[in-house]
Amino acid sequence: MTIKPTLASLMLLSGLLLSANGYAQDTVTLRLHHFAAPATPVQTEYLEPWAKRIEEQSEGAIKVEIFPAMQLGGSAPSLYDQAKDGVVDISWTLLSYTPNRFPESEAFDQPFLPTTGEATSMAAHEFATTHMQDAFEGVYPIAVFAHTPGKIHTRDTSVESADDLKGLAMRAPSKTMNRYLGLLGAQAVGMPMPQIPEAISRGVINGLTLPFESAAALGVLDIAQNHTFFEGEQGLYTAMMVLVLNQASYDALSSELKQVIDDNAGLQEAQRIGQAMDQAEERAIEAIEASGEGEMFYIAQDSLQPWQAAAETATAQWIADMDSRGFDGQLLYDEATRLVEKYTEQTK
């Protein structure tokens, strides 16, 4: 007896062959490239769990391979364009690595703006999706975020007052912080994070500004053992960062796989990254305190006046620069401040 397959049975078999996991698309591998060390908490406590979520929720149809420390080549300032141009699928980078390209983001570079990494990251994401949509043409922003406020770390001298910065060569993370440290009398030196360990070990710089969690992952806290904190709700500075996916890579996904990405992008991801950085910051500080190998110095509220005066000057100069470029600098700064206050209150 010959049994002829029905059209329905053939269609069913075709569907099964197309996708045993429910997604009618071959496995997609997304390459994620970033500048930081493999041990950085953003990788170990956010990117790796995020990649696992993506794989699980897509039932294995999407795999994410992570390449830290510029393993795929190029320089840290090239990371954004690597994702935009399709050299890689996803990149994590600081927008301040490309000065003047994302001018609105510099509102978050202003001194004494940030509170926690969580609250400031949520503020950064809302700010960027409101004021910077055109700047992200060609990429799909998975999350816009900001790191836990940075502290001052120095090698051979301690910074216990603003005067102690005078003449020190200090690594700064952004154009704004270069200006700010210069106003305090330091010799501001701009360089990407991967260059910091060699620079501090060789004495090219006397110190740096970074969160503890980043400095610990870089391995520089064994050299820069003097640490300066600022009392109060606002920290010294932060920087806006992005996790972006190449738009063509996103567009090539099936609708089901796009939904997996959509479900793991947005404000809640910025919040998760901020939380991971805050928790890592606490652990890094506790480890230094327990080791007894570093000295902690605290700038009290009643000693902040010279620091804040320089901050006001730096921010006023930035606002004037933005105005000369056709932006409303005051509006952008006020909006950044409002959003940080909003999410700080919301996350208490």
Rank of each mutant, 00 (worst) to 15 (best):
M241E: 13
A290D: 13
Q195H: 09
L79W: 04
E213K: 02
T176R: 06
N206H: 14
L304W: 02
D163M: 05
Q133A: 15
I288D: 11
A270G: 00
P49S: 04
T130Q: 14
S9F: 05
S105T: 05
F127G: 06
E233Q: 11
L10V: 14
D109V: 04
V204I: 13
A284S: 15
E293I: 00
Q195I: 04
A20S: 11
D323V: 03
V144W: 02
T148W: 00
I319G: 05
G203S: 05
S105R: 01
I288Y: 08
Y333P: 04
I285K: 04
V42D: 08
A76I: 02
S249Q: 10
D334F: 02
D334V: 01
Q71C: 10
V204F: 12
Q187K: 15
I288M: 14
A265R: 01
A290V: 06
P211W: 01
G138P: 11
D164G: 06
A51P: 09
Q301Y: 04
R53I: 02
T98I: 13
A217R: 08
G207W: 03
D26Q: 14
H147R: 11
G182L: 09
A336C: 05
A199H: 09
T315Y: 01
T209K: 01
A215F: 02
G232F: 00
E256A: 14
D163W: 01
P194E: 11
D164L: 07
I223S: 07
M296F: 15
E312T: 11
Q43Y: 01
T176I: 15
A314D: 06
S75D: 14
G232R: 01
T2D: 13
G266I: 03
E286F: 00
A290E: 15
A123S: 03
I205G: 04
L243V: 13
Y237N: 14
P211C: 10
F327E: 13
G266L: 03
P68M: 10
V159L: 09
T347S: 11
P77Y: 08
E213A: 13
A51T: 07
F102L: 07
Y343M: 00
L210M: 11
S58E: 08
Q305H: 07
A216W: 04
G86T: 11
S121R: 00
A320M: 10
Q268R: 01
K258S: 12
R31K: 15
A69F: 13
T6V: 08
Q82I: 06
I3C: 07
M70D: 08
Q259M: 11
